[in-house]
Amino acid sequence: MSAGPILAARGVTKEFVTRGTGKVVAGKARFTAVDDVSFEVPRGGTLGIVGESGSGKSTTARIIAKLIEPTRGTLEFDGEDVTSATGRALTSFRQNVQVVFQDPYSSLNPKHTVERLISAPLDYQRITPPQGRRAFVAELMERVGLNPDHAQRYPSQFSGGQAQRIGIARALALRPKLVICDEAVSALDVSVQARVINLLNELKADLGLSYVFIAHDLAVVRQIADTIAVMHRGRIVESGSRDDVFERPQDDYTKSLLAAVPRIDPEWDRRRLEMLAAEAAAENAESTEPAEPRARVGGGAA
């Protein structure tokens, strides 16, 4: 095993041919969705890709997952050129690289139960987990915050964010080397999001997984990525370490992106914190009085 990057893309370009109006002989139009893009995913690291909607992030993801062919450019995985891999090499690539797609429902077979969806990759590889299939699926569902009792349900019976997590669980089932997450946590509330991101980070630390993490939520990207690439109109306009990009952005587009992040009114935040502080103070004052039992406030044992 070499020590280089787990994945390297060089000069990757994708042109789509679209037909003008769909009539029989309408002129063809070419559209360059990804334009001469090069990047590396560090082994055991996370590359965050952010950028404008329609800038070619998902297309890049599909190319590096070898789901579509690039028009030009090469792809190296684990030190080997996989640009035109077929047969055994491709099978092994597919085992090691998993994708979580942007549109959860469209990527899950509606006729399969969640248990089947999550364990299918294992069956293809003829792997039987030591604790048994059922327990394995239950454990994985639990880790992404799904109720294991729902293992026999179908994708349409889940909410958008739950479907997204089914996709994540499926991608992690095979213990791949690289996981490509395309807006994988975009529909999750902060608590579940935190849970999933912590899980991804744990796996990174324990098993040395690497990620390509595409997201529009810059706060999330900041928490998970080591290096960041910013895409705009098919090109990478800026890339570098997380802190460099976030704290010392060079490109104008990156700057406008960072400036546009919606924030809660700091004044509101301040008032909330003040209120909490005041409440805590009052509670403290109460609990210092020995006679007063705390039971009325209830719970709170986080």
């Binding site: 509330d189 902060v190 608590s191 999001q193 935190a194 849970r195 991101i197 912590n198 980070n201 810059l218 706060a219 999330v220 900041r222 928490q223 997380r242 802190d243 976030f246 960072l258 992040v261 924030r263 809660i264 909330r272």
Partner: peptide
């Protein structure tokens, strides 16, 4: 929820969660 909100300005390595 409001406590756990990740802020762009402070990169936590591990999220607090809820």
């Amino acid at each position: 929820l409001l406590d756990a909100l990740p802020r762009i300005d402070d990169p936590f390595e591990t999220l607090k969660g809820v």
